[in-house]
Design a protein around this nucleic acid. Structure first.
Lengths: 167, 167
DNA sequence: TATAATTTTCAATAATTTTTGAAAGTTTAA
DNA sequence: TTAAACTTTCAAAAATTATTGAAAATTATA
């Protein structure tokens, strides 16, 4: 496999994996491209490499910036903006986990809490609803906490212990 | 909040969360409905509760069965099939993690391995591609292993230790 | 075996999501 | 200022994904 093919393969694989961490294809592909690029890239370069429109590029780069994964860079004497992504995988994982937790998991946990707190009217179906949503709430809470601890701060004791445990 | 409203809320919340674990809305909603239902339900009941068509119900129940999350039940003297979902949240998490790993994560890890093994031609861009995909490969490998260990078997030492650690 | 009950299939349609591209907006430098 | 270089916006179009519903297939019973 040659460089060009390998890069395309990576961009495409990472792009289709976007759904796994809750972003769309173009956004994931832009991030992938920047991730393996030794130098920051301009809008033009991203458009050319991924064969996507200017508008698409602009919107998705903006979203990546909102996520805190991509940064603008300005070069002296140049008008255009250069974009680069976080290069450290641990840091990347930390940011993604935090954002997903904040945007999706925490709100769901809150809703589960509310649902599991409805008044028990003594019927079987109500008891079941309360029991099951409570169980789900507790699991989600534990998973969310674990996820955040697992990725937070590189040298933190939880992650190092975890690494040892699973080896 | 009354029972009916709470149930709808749960089905809808869980449904929109479907993307988080990689399934579509209807599939997630059916699972949610069965999850809080004290008794197994028939196709007719699912259709009525979720206001979806027979075909949609059939296809998505089938997928849930493929995932190993839903089971068919037959009642003596009755022709129609009853469906029920796994009720234990730990077991549910285990099944989902295993399936996602098998369907999505493992194939990506395999691809990352291949990409990071391309010949180093000495150029900066090739070095960067190799370095970054290797880092991602290792992270994905660790995360996948951790995920599987974290959810596998209720009384296993990893999970109990984890629980203690994060409390 | 015939028939009635039920489930499955799948082409057509609908809904949703993504992408485009051109106009509007912004910034910099002469 | 003005104009050129560049970025952002957003309505319309395209692409993708989900849903329907009726016909075909299957299954159980008489």
């Amino acid at each position: 496999m040659e460089y060009q093919e390998a890069k395309q393969q990576f961009v495409s694989t990472w792009g289709s994996l976007g759904t796994l961490w809750g972003i769309n294809k173009a956004m994931a592909q832009i991030q992938a491209l920047l991730f393996v690029s030794p130098k920051p890239l301009t809008t033009e370069q991203i458009m050319a490499e991924l064969q996507i429109s200017r508008g698409n590029t602009s919107m998705n780069v903006r979203q990546l910036i909102d996520w805190g994964i991509v940064k603008k860079e300005l070069k002296v004497g140049e008008r255009k903006e250069y974009y680069s992504t976080e290069k450290d995988v641990q840091e990347l994982a930390r940011i993604i986990a935090k954002e997903r937790s904040r945007r999706e998991i925490r709100p769901v946990i809150k809703t589960l809490k509310e649902i599991s707190s409805i008044k028990d009217d003594g019927t079987e179906k109500t008891k079941e609803l309360i029991k099951q949503t409570k169980a789900l709430h507790d699991l989600a809470e534990t998973a969310d906490t674990l996820l955040n601890k697992a990725v937070s701060h590189k040298q933190n004791w939880v992650s190092s212990t975890l690494i040892k445990m699973i080896k």
